[in-house]
Amino acid sequence: MSNNIEELIILIAWYNTTNEDTISTFTANKQTFIDYNPGVKVFDVINPFIDSPIIGPSIDLAFFRWYLENKSDIFSKRFVLVGWDCWCDCSVNSYFSRVWDCDFVVPSVKYPERDTWHWFYQIRNLPIDVRQYAVGISPFCGIMMSDKAMSLIADEILKPVYQALHSELRLGTIATMLNLDPIVNPVYSRSIGWREPQFGQKYRGFHHPRKTLSS
């Protein structure tokens, strides 16, 4: 067992596929994180829940299962979670510089009292005493968490009572319930979204989504 404590570890969600274009895109995306963050460890996190008929979108569960399986051997102050379809053209330190010491940093936060968001229909699936904490984070990419946050959330999020929820609602809600209020990275909207950002590549940062290299 190693006692070295990393400042940062990058975790990239991935899944088993034989699609050559997808594999090539993932490999190229991952390489950008290696190139712009020399000396930082980068790990692939395979999602074992992806084909489950019971569990909903589960990228969060894959990350926290990985954490529990490896926490006795890998020590880091911070973890950055990204999807396979994300790439970067700056360092993690630069991208998160304004929120570097926060426990839980996300691209954006959705509140049922304020926002119209598709996944809020699942609030009824939360335990009654948890519904008051319902919060969404979107998209599930470009998230930074302290080891404290990873540890606290990992002990709760894998419980069966949360399985049917969407990952973005599940993580935001459980974090809020544990007094780990999500903090928005103020530069996220220039480069992360569900579609190609309006700014293109004008600003350096994390870019999402890129699912193919052919476009």
Rank of each mutant, 00 (worst) to 15 (best):
L81D: 04
V187F: 02
G205Y: 12
P57M: 10
E20Y: 12
V105R: 09
Q31T: 07
M145V: 13
I153L: 05
T17I: 10
I55E: 07
K77G: 08
I23N: 05
F64Y: 12
S76A: 15
R170K: 15
F206P: 02
C88E: 01
P107W: 08
K159I: 02
G39C: 06
D115S: 10
E113D: 14
D21S: 12
A62W: 10
I10K: 00
F63M: 09
S76F: 13
W66I: 02
S108F: 15
S146F: 02
S72W: 08
L180E: 01
D89H: 06
I34P: 01
P127H: 02
K71G: 06
Y203H: 15
Y67F: 14
T116F: 15
I34T: 07
N185E: 03
P182V: 06
A149I: 05
Y67I: 03
W66A: 01
I128F: 11
N47S: 10
A13W: 09
T116I: 15
S76N: 04
R170W: 13
V135P: 03
W119Y: 14
R131G: 01
D35N: 02
P57Q: 10
G172F: 14
T212W: 06
R65L: 14
R98V: 05
E6C: 09
R210K: 05
D101N: 13
N3A: 12
Y67N: 07
F120H: 07
R78K: 12
L8P: 00
R124S: 15
I157Q: 00
Y67K: 06
T18L: 13
G193S: 14
I9W: 04
S138I: 04
C90S: 06
